[in-house]
Design a protein around this nucleic acid. Structure first.
Lengths: 123, 123
DNA sequence: CCGCATCCTTTAAGATACTG
DNA sequence: CAGTATCTTAAAGGATGCGG
């Protein structure tokens, strides 16, 4: 149980409860279906496109590319393209991305640890 | 930078990177567009449907009802319906829900605190 | 009147094929 | 290899109705 945030807080730092606040969009990107998994995998270190595609089971190339673009746009992921044949593109977390990844990883860890209890409670 | 999880970990507690693992579905529910905001508001205490609708700016009644149903199904939210006219339905976090809410709130707090930097970096 | 359920429209996601 | 373009399919969202 916490108290509602003060007005000064809501003006100074953005407010996810306000529909017009840009934090809403960032939160949507970070908590996106594939973004969560990509951030977790990238926390292990730099990965190439194809490696991400293999680690994040079930992601399509289209969604992987789109999600990486969003994360890059938000400054959470850095894209480095090596001009060689065949092409070689590396994706790395920025310092900001490392922080975001740590948060979503803690959440995912919690889900993984509690999923047996959750599934059991469903009957 | 962390290391890839051991095989025993991936079998014992669920693995969000495996498409078939039920943790994927739970993670999707918890990180859903509206679920994140609903969990945060419910952390302040029990709320009724109409109050949630007002606090979570932009949510439709349909999405609010659907998301609450998912969270209830996962055992994160408890629904108490008082048989009065006009109807009165209360939603409360379960102990499990409190934990989940704490995690998503920390993530949302981080986003709110860093959104100025993120928006600025976009140019 | 509040809390949904149902219908219908709009948007996002997924599969597939193709190019620098 | 690392994407993009195109098409199909599923999910999100909005308007409306209805039972309690």
């Amino acid at each position: 149980m916490t108290q509602p945030p003060s007005l000064s807080d809501r003006l100074r730092r953005g407010d996810v409860l306000a529909a017009a606040c840009p934090s809403r969009e960032v939160l949507r990107h970070v908590t996106g279906r594939w973004a969560v998994l990509i951030l977790i995998v990238l926390e292990e270190g730099t990965q190439r496109f194809s490696a991400l595609r293999r680690r994040v089971d079930g992601v399509s190339e289209r969604m992987l590319a789109q999600t990486l673009k969003h994360l890059e746009h938000d400054g959470l992921v850095a894209r480095v393209s090596h001009a060689v044949v065949p092409p070689h593109v590396d994706y790395t977390l920025t310092p900001l991305g490392e922080e975001a990844a740590a948060h979503v990883r803690r959440l995912a860890d919690w889900v993984e640890a509690n999923v047996p209890q959750i599934v059991a409670a469903r009957g």
